[in-house]
Every structure is written in structure tokens, then in C-alpha cells.
Write a protein that binds this DNA or RNA. Structure first.
Length: 120
RNA sequence: GAGGGAGGGCGGGCAGCCGCCCCGAACCGGGGAGGAAAGUCCGGGCUCCACAGGGCAGGGUGCUGGAUAACGUCCAGUCGGGGAAACCCGAAGGAAAGUGCCACAGAAAACAAACCGCCGGACCUUCGGGUCCGGUAAGGGUGAAACGGUGAGGUAAGAGCUCACCAGCGGCUCGGGUGACCGGGCCGGCUUGGCAAACCCCACCCGGAGCAAGACCAAAUAGGGGAGCGUGACGAGGGCGGCCCGCCCCAGGCUCCCGGGUAGGUCGCUCGAGGCUCGGAGCAAUCUGAGUCCCAGAGGAAUGGUUGCCGCCCGUUCGCGGGCACAGAACCCGGCUUAUACCCCUCCCCCCUCC
RNA sequence: GGCCCUAUCGUCUAGCGGUUAGGACGGCGGCCUCUCACGCCGCAAGCUGGAGUUCGAUUCUCCAUAGGGUCA
């Protein structure tokens, strides 16, 4: 494992970076749905978690979609100390209405996903 | 003080905590969204493809001069239109090269012609007028638009038929201007509709595609070419031969090499028609000299999340609550167009009041 | 990110600068039938928005908006 454990950081090695990686996660049947977010996930063998976001054009124009991604990223990185040792690839897809939600609300939903995964 | 016109600036500020992307000998330092980054409507650089030259087709532009790498952009002017003015708007060449169109109405929509009329003559007449022939285009009415306008002469009635002035056209000419054009003089025939963002003519410009361009490295799998080794044992195919034997070719196997090329990776990728300061030329657009600075380069895509204070705006039960535009780089530049809260600055016009 | 295309009743579509903007399906009303369907007759409803050219624009030009296609 990494000698320096991440605290609240969210560097590239904890992210999904390729279209094929996203497609692999989306092909799996595992999902968890909260009020504003959909979590798709599949197991990996890396010893840590990887997270990616998919924000479709349905949410609005570029400035709105960027805002959603930034708040999602902030929500996830604040959970990284607990989240990072899950052996999962996760794709988080916002549902309609996410644009008006604050970062702290999205973080709470991600936390409920985290609790669910820990019980598995 | 009220209203209006032209142009420009800004695009909330400071601090704490936690983060992200890129660069650099790297737990530290440096940099990190816009005036529109947007729409993709034009133009250029760059890259690949095509190409002797010229023409045709197709597309674009369209007053003049200038600026520029280039433009459909910009600047300065000309003319036309709007406005009381400041000022604004204009795809603004050619309609006496040709073709076409001009609905409805109207007699007639561009060749000239004549419905109601007006006038003269002949004939008829129930004395109201009618028919025919000829002259005419002043008046009526239609239309978006009707073949110059006003006045006088002239006439049977009229008419550029004649004359004066005006408008317009053509030619010659003088002055000013680089030019578009402007101002003036003389002469002529007397008068010519609109539409070219209809076809078209004329002048000028344009090869095509686009960084998902393109260049390099290069798995796995399939297939191509070549070399070597080996098999050809039953049997099949081809060649030598009429047939057999025999020999050769071919086929399957293994090893190696070569080339194309997919996934993937690297480059292209940011120093540039660059920014800032001070000068110089020019009315200006812009050009130019010196000094100085390095200022995003990702690739499921960073430039943020959160808290506090202050500043505006709205609401307020005076505790506070809510809001702060339009909008997010993707090869790079020059323009155009569109979106944009609050606030600030400069100049100009007109009106009112006061000095 | 680049390059293209389209826009006409609720839907699918015609439309030579002057049209009452035409048709089909659907809708509504009526006739027919014991009733429904079929059939017949009738009605309502439309040019994406803004400028410009023209006497006149759904049509021509420009700008915008909204959809859609295509290239890894």
C-alpha cells in the first residue's frame, strides 16, 4: 500500500481515467441509488478505490455540469480516509435536480453509500 | 435640473482550513479561465492531399481612398435615407447588353395605347340626343407605381407644339479633390417606370480538407511476403511421359526475418501577426523604435469546496434571512454576431431655470 | 472539438414573390345504424423569433433560437 495515506486528497490514481474503465463499471449490474445520485460499482484488484463521474448534457450547459462535478469531487474527497481502501471501481451519476444541491448534501448521500458497502 | 446621443471601464474584495492540474534536480518554488473562453458567420497561420499554364463550372465580394498576414473586418471620406439636433442607418456597380416578372384594381403596367371624357365633320333625329369617321390626352377614376412640374402663349379641342423658370438626362468644358464626388458655364434632344437579397452582365477574389489535421513508436489476434529445417508414410492434385517406376512442384508442421496496421502510447501543444511602459509617423484604423515580461496547456478533461468579515441589492417581526450577472479554455490568432446584474468615467445635443 | 442538415395545423407532409396556405391521420359536431365500426358531410387549428430587400415575404438575404446527423 501507499506509505503516505491520503487524507482528504483526490489525486489521479483514485480516479477512473479511460472510457473503457467507465464502460466496464457500467456493464456490471451492481448499483446503489440515493435521492440525487446513482452509484454503479464493480470490484477491482488494486487494493484501493477508484471513482469517476458521469454528468450528462441533460443537466445543462458546461458551466452547470462543471459545477456539479466540482461539488461531487469535493464530497468524495472529504470521505477519502474511509473510502479509499474499498476494492471498488465506482461511477457516480447525478440525477436531475442535482444542480441546485450543495456539496454537503451530496457528501451525506455518498456517506450512506459508504455505510452500505462496509456492511457487505 | 429633465430628456436624448456617442464611447469606455469594472465584471465583488480580503483572510483561514482542505484540495486539484501543469512546469522546474521536485514533502519547496512558479503558473493556472473570458470579455465574450459562446455561436461557428467570415478571414489567416499551421498540417496533409491535389496541382505545368490557362480557361469553364461553382461560390463569394460589390461607392472611394487607406489599414492589414487576410477578411464579408476596421479607419477616413462621398452619396442616399431618418432625426429638431447631437447622431444613427445603408449588400450603395450595371435596368438606353439581353431575358423575365409587376397579383388585385385599372382603358392602359412599359411596345405604346384610349374606358368615361373633350373637339371637328358626315348622316339620322321623336330635337333629349344617337351612329360612323377623324383629332386629342388637359380633366375623371384605379393602383405601390400612369410616360416631367408650374405659368404663359397657342388651338376646333388639345399637346414640349412653342417660350420662361424648375427638376431630370446626355455631350463638351472650367475650377477643387489621389478618388468616389462637389461647385460653375455652354450646347442638345425635349423626358427615358420599378425589381438584379429575379436570371444575368461587368470588375475583383477563392484548389480541397481540417489538430478526430498530421508525424513517430507499437502489443494481442488474424492475414500477406521471404528464408531455413523437416515431412511427403496410405492416398489425392500439377509437371516430364502413352503407362509404370522415378524425379520435381505444390500442401499441412516448426523456427526466424520483413512490411502494412488496430488497441495503446509519444509528439503536434503553446514564444505569439504576444503583453506592458515610454517615445516617433499618421485625422484615424494602423505602423514603427527602445526597454521590459514569460502569462493555462488538460486529455472522463485541473483552475475548486467550505467558513468568517466587509461591500452592494431585496425582504424584515430589527434577531436576521435570501441574493450578487452572462458564462467555463481544448491547435493558435484577426474580426463579426449573440448573452450580460450592480456600479463608475468621458464627450456631445436639445429644453427649462438662475447668474 | 470540427463539419453539415432541418424547421409549415396535435402528428406526417405539399406549396414558381400576390393562394381563403392544400392533403392525409388524429380531434370536434352532424347524418347513417337498434348500437358500435365502416362510410358520407361539415368545423377548428399552422408558416420558430428578429431585422432587411420588395408595392407585397411561408417563399429571397442576414442574425438568432431549437432540434437532428456525422467524424475517435
Amino acid at each position: 500500500m501507499d506509505p503516505e495515506r491520503p487524507r482528504f486528497g483526490f489525486p489521479k490514481r483514485y480516479r477512473l481515467l479511460k472510457r473503457t474503465q467507465f464502460l466496464a463499471v457500467q456493464a456490471s449490474p451492481n448499483r446503489f441509488v440515493s435521492k440525487h445520485l446513482v452509484f454503479l460499482f464493480t470490484e477491482n484488484s488494486l487494493g484501493h478505490v477508484r471513482v469517476g463521474f458521469t454528468v450528462s448534457k441533460r443537466h445543462g450547459k458546461a458551466v452547470v455540469r462543471n459545477g456539479i462535478k466540482r461539488r461531487l469531487r469535493s464530497a468524495v474527497r472529504h470521505l477519502m480516509p474511509e473510502l479509499h481502501e474499498l476494492n471498488l471501481d465506482v461511477v457516480i451519476i447525478p440525477r436531475v435536480g442535482t444542480a441546485s444541491r450543495r456539496s454537503i448534501e451530496l457528501q451525506a448521500e455518498a456517506e450512506s453509500f459508504l455505510q452500505r458497502m462496509r456492511r457487505r
